[in-house]
């Protein structure tokens, strides 16, 4: 998966992730080499159980260090969070059964682990969300020459006619546009985009400008279909979902059935090119708003109210 390697390489240069990796290594080595000494330093006693626990924790830390420094993945960060919780539980048990000697050191260790836990949770949450790029592709063949199909597609203000989640696209400059799309729960996301490549009749590519709610880019490639069957159209959309509530809602939204949605968008584009409009049935009268949900409206003529709802 291309998405995976990309997030791996980004995490490898992430100072927080590397810092946590080295911290794991620094803690793990003494725990494994001298578990009794380490346990005494924590003020939890150096009985055989404490020594065994300390050594086991050390092995876990070394594994996390290796993972985070070599092949960083959000899973390792979440692994650290899990380990932190185990440590906190063990320290809590130690505090409860404490004989008083070195109590101050145990309390300090507990405070330190609490801070580390918070840092790990922060790193895991933010790095997980940052590493969720998504790429969708879909393809179709439509009647017409590539230059004709290119003209229809690059009339960007018409994209919302057939792309289900787009509400509005406005041309704001020779290479720039403003996009507005619907997200679940009545939210909207907006962004400015600029055309990054434009080869008439063959290719158009765009990407969102800095500060977009959802970083995204896309491209459409056109090629003549063999046997004089019109134009092959290949669409690629990429979304880089940032942290925060918006990213989450967007992710859930796209998680619905993103490929199906893009396929349906292209089908509607084809309908517009080849028949002039989106074909409506009584069962799915809403045109692009009909999301293929079942049960549908029954296949019988619409009442006046239903008609108004479907056509506006």
């Amino acid at each position: 998966m291309t998405a995976d390697t990309r997030s791996t390489s980004r995490l490898r240069h992430d100072p927080l992730v590397r810092g946590l990796g080295w911290a794991s290594a620094l803690l793990g080595v003494p725990q494994v080499v001298d578990p009794a000494g380490f346990a005494r330093a924590l003020g939890v006693g150096d009985g055989s159980r404490q020594r065994l626990t300390t050594a086991a924790v050390g092995v876990r830390e070394l594994a996390a260090a290796a993972g985070l420094l070599w092949r960083p993945r959000p899973a390792w960060l979440w692994g650290r969070v899990g380990g932190d919780l185990m440590d906190l539980a063990a320290l809590a048990r130690a505090l409860r059964n404490h004989d008083g000697r070195g109590l101050g050191r145990t309390v300090a260790a507990t405070a330190a682990v609490t801070v580390i836990t918070a840092t790990d949770v922060y790193a895991a949450v933010t790095r997980t969300r940052r590493s969720a790029p998504m790429e969708l592709t879909a393809t179709t063949t439509v009647a017409g020459r590539p230059d004709e199909v290119y003209d229809l597609w690059t009339d960007l203000e018409r994209l919302p006619d057939f792309m289900a989640h787009l509400e509005d696209v406005r041309v704001t400059g020779p290479r720039t546009t403003h996009w507005r799309a619907s997200a679940p729960f009545g939210r909207t996301v907006e962004w400015d985009a600029e055309v990054t490549r434009d080869v008439p009749g063959r290719l158009i590519a765009w990407r969102s400008a800095d500060g977009a709610d959802v970083d995204n880019s896309g491209e459409v490639r056109l090629a003549p279909a063999p046997g004089d069957r019109g134009t092959e159209l290949q669409v690629t959309l990429r979304y880089d979902l940032p942290g925060g509530a918006l990213g989450k809602t967007a992710a859930r939204y796209f998680g619905e059935e993103p490929h199906q949605q893009l396929d349906d968008d292209l089908r509607r584009f084809k309908q517009i090119v080849e028949t002039g409009e989106i074909v409506r049935s009584e069962g799915a009268p809403g045109g692009k708003r009909a999301r293929g949900e079942f049960p549908q409206h029954p296949a019988r003529p619409l009442t006046e109210g239903e008609l108004k709802e479907a056509l506006t």
Binding site: R267, E282, G292
Partner: peptide, 30 residues
């Protein structure tokens, strides 16, 4: 082009088929 439920029809048949009057929602719900 004539089956608004082409996505569904495609799942059943591999490729979508045309809309048909009075013949289930698999063929469009007409």
């Amino acid at each position: 082009n004539t089956n608004p439920n082409a996505g569904l029809s495609e799942k059943f048949f591999g490729h979508p088929t045309a809309g048909i009057y009075g013949y289930s929602h698999l063929t469009g719900g007409f």
